[in-house]
């Protein structure tokens, strides 16, 4: 048997050594890990406008190309819940997971405005976040410049079941369904996009759900309806502005 002092000394010495070594390693890798995370998030945002990136898919882009697109083609805006721009903030600094914990009125929203190099068309990329079956799900929805047609969507999740709920990310045909859908019905009422079990009934704003993943798909519907609505004050103002501009041009 060892004396208490020996045990205490041993434990203290060991934890001290381990703590110093691990802190050191963390400091060395921190910058690189943060850069990786930023690139990872930027790729997720570009996924929603993948069809407009030229002939490359997002996963084929190098890290430098991703940075380059963000430098030259993406404008970052942060909005408050009234649709006003918040100065001195970059959209990439907004942590959606943290925003979700705040009361609704105090949240800020990241908005990425992507411009196509050839057509100069602008795409408004909205970030949404909600709950799946096991944990959080989130996505980026790109709206065309008419502010009602979806150009593309991409989703991700923390811990949905592989093969079922995780298909929202893994199965490209799920997210491809969103392309061309409208977020308003024919009468102009806000609908967002509904993920419908047993198949879409309305071509305009419904997509097919994934069999066996009802809760995740309902989560996607709820997330889109609530999440896109947050951007409505800004989108409406933008729409009014473009109407005025269109009028002046005429």
């Amino acid at each position: 048997m060892n004396s208490t002092n020996y045990i205490l000394g041993f434990i203290l010495a060991m934890t001290a050594i381990v703590a110093v070594l691990l802190t050191g390693l963390r400091e060395v890798t921190k910058a690189g890990a943060e850069r990786n995370e930023a690139i990872f998030n930027k790729r997720a945002i570009l996924m929603s406008v993948e069809n407009y990136l030229g002939d490359k898919q997002v996963k084929q882009l190098s890290d430098a190309e991703v940075e380059n697109i963000f430098q030259n083609q993406v404008e970052q805006v942060v909005l408050n819940m009234d649709g006003e721009e918040v100065e001195s903030m970059m959209a990439e600094d907004v942590d959606m997971a943290k925003e979700r914990k705040k009361p609704e009125a105090e949240r800020v929203l990241p908005l990425y405005i992507f411009s196509d190099t050839d057509t100069k068309e602008k795409f408004y990329i909205l970030s949404v976040r909600g709950n799946g079956l096991w944990d959080e799900i989130w996505g980026n929805i790109a709206l065309k410049s008419d502010l009602e047609t979806i150009a593309g969507a991409a989703f991700d999740h923390t811990g949905e079941t592989p093969g079922l709920g995780a298909e929202i990310k893994d199965n490209a045909s799920f997210r491809k369904q969103f392309e061309g859908k409208k977020i308003y019905d024919a009468e102009g009422n806000y609908t967002a996009v509904v993920v419908r079990k047993n198949g879409a009934r309305n071509d305009r704003y419904e997509v097919d759900a994934i069999s066996g993943a009802t809760v995740t798909c309902d989560g996607v519907t709820e997330m889109l309806q609530r999440g896109i609505k947050y951007y409505q004050p800004y989108l409406e103002e933008l729409d009014a502005e473009s109407d005025v501009q269109g009028f002046l041009v005429q």
């Binding site: 381990v18 691990l22 963390r26 890798t29 690139i39």
Partner: peptide, 19 residues
């Protein structure tokens, strides 16, 4: 403590090398 430190090393390295 030994296992946990090594796992932390793996985690930090992986975050750095392949996010």
């Amino acid at each position: 403590v030994i296992i946990a430190s090594l796992v932390t090393v793996v985690e930090l390295t992986l975050k750095y090398l392949n996010y």
